[in-house]
């Protein structure tokens, strides 16, 4: 270990720490601000623009949001899409990745066809046409099936399966196991931790996805939370989007605090999962350069 003791070194270290802490604050403060405003009264919000700790706490905005059936429903839709979608992702990705990790007929051709979709895709309009022709338009399944496999995760998962020692599967074959039995009794139990990590990757994509909703869904009843959030915050239509709650309350809270509360609610699951996400995703980045 090297020791830095000269004054210049200390000056360097302190400047470095101060700059990094400032960077971290730039990432953190917008979030704290949103958090604080969502719990503030309107009076306080109007008095001082910048609040990091509210003087009087209120949950008015949250009460209002939960009064709105549109909001609660879209949370439900997103939870459904995230859970079912992730299960579909896992099943489809793991099964194809497993087959491609074994010596399946025409393996090289299949791998090439998978890799090619990472380099070139038909694009938005032809995919939209297929979704329309298959009758998925305006169905929640349009947010699940067209993105059932991410080629990138497929390749990474295949690499994981390839890492399982061959001797285990060979021993099973000698014992008379077929490929289905090998997959379900040997590979699957050994891959549980990896599959858990992949389910996190996929779940975050589903939770944060808004554009498929805009592209494929045209009835607001089916909107996932991110689409509704876009309506509430970036289109600035808080009162129109949550109109059903407006009727119930005589004195609705201002759009500002409602917007911030909505942002926070849409982010809570990500924040809860964040410790796990940070751990697994950092590993995933390093797997980025695996070869097919």
């Amino acid at each position: 270990m090297i020791k830095y003791s000269s004054t210049r070194d200390k000056l360097f270290d302190w400047t470095n720490i101060v700059l990094l802490v400032l960077t971290a604050l730039i990432m953190l403060i917008p979030f704290l601000y949103v958090f604080a405003i969502s719990f503030s009264t309107y009076k306080e919000f109007l008095q001082s623009n910048f609040i990091l700790i509210p003087k009087t706490w209120t949950v008015e905005a949250y009460q209002f949001i939960f009064e709105s059936r549109a909001f609660v429903r879209s949370i439900g839709v997103t939870v459904y899409i995230t859970v079912v979608g992730t299960l579909v992702n896992l099943a489809m990705t793991a099964s194809l990745a497993y087959a491609l990790s074994r010596d399946i007929w025409a393996k090289r051709l299949l791998l090439f066809l998978v890799l090619f979709t990472m380099l070139f895709s038909a694009g938005m309009i032809p995919t939209y046409m297929v979704v329309r022709e298959t009758g998925l338009l305006n169905s929640i399944w349009a947010l699940i099936l067209p993105s059932a496999i991410s080629s990138f995760y497929l390749i990474v998962m295949r690499h994981f399966f390839l890492g399982i020692p061959k001797e285990i599967t060979e021993a099973a074959i000698i014992d008379g196991a077929n490929d289905l039995q090998i997959a379900s009794r040997i590979i699957l139990p050994l891959s549980k931790p990896a599959l858990a990590a992949f389910s996190l990757f996929y779940a975050v994509i589903h939770w944060n996805n808004y554009f498929s909703g805009i592209l494929y869904l045209n009835t607001p009843e089916k909107w996932p939370i991110q689409v509704l959030l876009r309506q509430i915050v970036t289109q600035n239509e808080a009162s129109a989007s949550l109109a059903d709650a407006q009727v119930l309350l005589e004195n609705p809270p201002p759009a500002e605090t409602v917007q911030m509360a909505a942002i926070l609610l849409a982010t809570v699951p990500i924040l809860i999962l964040y410790p796990f996400l940070q751990k697994h995703f950092a590993k995933g980045v390093m797997l980025g350069s695996v070869k097919g």
């Binding site: 194809l96 087959a99 491609l100 032809p126 995919t127 046409m129 059932a148």
Partner: peptide, 29 residues
């Protein structure tokens, strides 16, 4: 010999055909 592997791979292959390669023919639009 590979029949079970194809069975396992089938949903995935179907996905690539329907949502990745059929749209490529749709490029004829």
């Amino acid at each position: 010999k590979d029949r079970y592997l194809f069975l396992i791979a089938f949903p995935g292959i179907l996905f690539y055909i329907v949502f990745k390669y059929v749209p490529m023919f749709g490029l004829s639009l």
